[in-house]
Design a protein around this nucleic acid. Structure first.
Length: 294
DNA sequence: AAGAACTCCTGTTGGC
DNA sequence: TGCCAACAGGAGTTCT
């Protein structure tokens, strides 16, 4: 479900109820999600104050007073639901009608010292929560091979061209590879490629071809990746199926999709006149306009 | 050793 | 209406 913009939206929502608060109570309602929960998970959190809540790729990282870091990943369907102290009743939609109720997919419930209740719900259970020592975080198996943050200065045309230079795989697959760019997912890769007018079918190495260390194509693509992510974060992410920020707000970037989910519709580029096509790459849908994306 | 296929799990949707 | 297949925002593991 969530790609970088959605995870960042969740991070911002959780920050205000998590940081500086302590875990008063942790209810772990099953033994595992994608992975087993850590040993003595509730005990290791209870009483701990949260120092900060960060994000790396699609991971949320809560630094604890104990020195441990709580690593959380939402998988495809994971979400957090916040109920603040004094139960505000003005949240819309599903959030309202399920207030006070339990869902069979509510797997973890945090009760914080500020009175907030934070519920982790995940139907497909591809998400997970792990604990690791803060000083071992960088070397953690899940962290050590991650590529650059796409919104950082380090993500440049030179970097992208260098990392794609010898890749035989498709450009689509390369952009989804978290070892190259950390945090991109299927939607935003499709949208960035559309904005850059590049075909997802193009060989990744072709990004490095052309004049200079970074080709024209890499120079064109990198700013589009950044802008599509920035635009999506500004919109609070994309709401497909049921994504919403932790306090119930819906993201609205899905209204700005140019190609994702638009198979058979006319290309959004003025004057193009092409028709959006869906192909399958690596078992996942790619949407693009064969006419203007080359 | 890169790249593709398979896997986890549940829910929703579209076609008949 | 029901039934069934296809598909869904991820990514670690296993194969070739």
């Amino acid at each position: 479900m969530p790609e970088l913009p959605e995870v960042e939206t969740v991070r911002r929502g959780l920050e205000s109820v998590l940081v500086d608060a302590r875990f008063d109570r942790v209810e772990q309602r099953r033994a595992d999600l994608r992975f087993p929960f850590p040993e003595r998970f509730p005990e290791r959190l209870t009483g701990q104050r949260v120092i900060s809540l960060g994000r790396r790729a699609k991971y949320l990282l809560a630094a604890l007073e104990s020195g441990e870091v709580l690593i959380m990943h939402l998988g495809m369907s994971g979400r957090f639901i916040i109920a603040r102290a004094g139960a505000n009743v003005k949240n819309p939609g599903e959030f309202l009608h399920r207030a006070g109720q339990q869902d069979r997919h509510d797997h973890v419930i945090f009760t914080m010292s500020n009175g907030a209740t934070i519920t982790y719900n995940d139907a497909r259970r591809f998400g997970f929560m792990l604990l690791t020592a803060g000083n071992e975080l960088q070397a953690h198996k899940l962290m050590r091979n991650l590529g650059v943050e796409p919104l950082s200065e380090d993500f440049s045309p030179d970097y992208l061209a260098a990392r794609c230079g010898a890749k035989k795989t498709s450009l689509k697959a390369a952009l989804l590879d978290q070892r190259i760019i950390a945090g991109l997912g299927n939607i935003y890769v499709c949208e960035a490629l559309f904005r850059a007018r590049l075909s997802p079918r193009r060989e990744a190495s072709s990004l490095a071809l052309g004049s200079g260390a970074a080709s024209m194509r890499a120079r064109r693509l990198v700013p589009k990746i950044k802008s599509v992510l920035e635009d999506a974060i500004a919109a609070g992410g994309s709401t497909l199926k049921d994504f919403h920020a932790p306090e119930g707000e819906l993201g609205y970037f899905q209204h700005s999709f140019a190609v994702y989910g638009r198979e058979g519709l006319e290309c959004a580029r003025p004057g193009c006149g092409g028709v959006v096509k869906r192909i399958v790459q690596g078992g996942r849908s790619s949407f693009y306009c064969p006419r203007c994306q080359r």
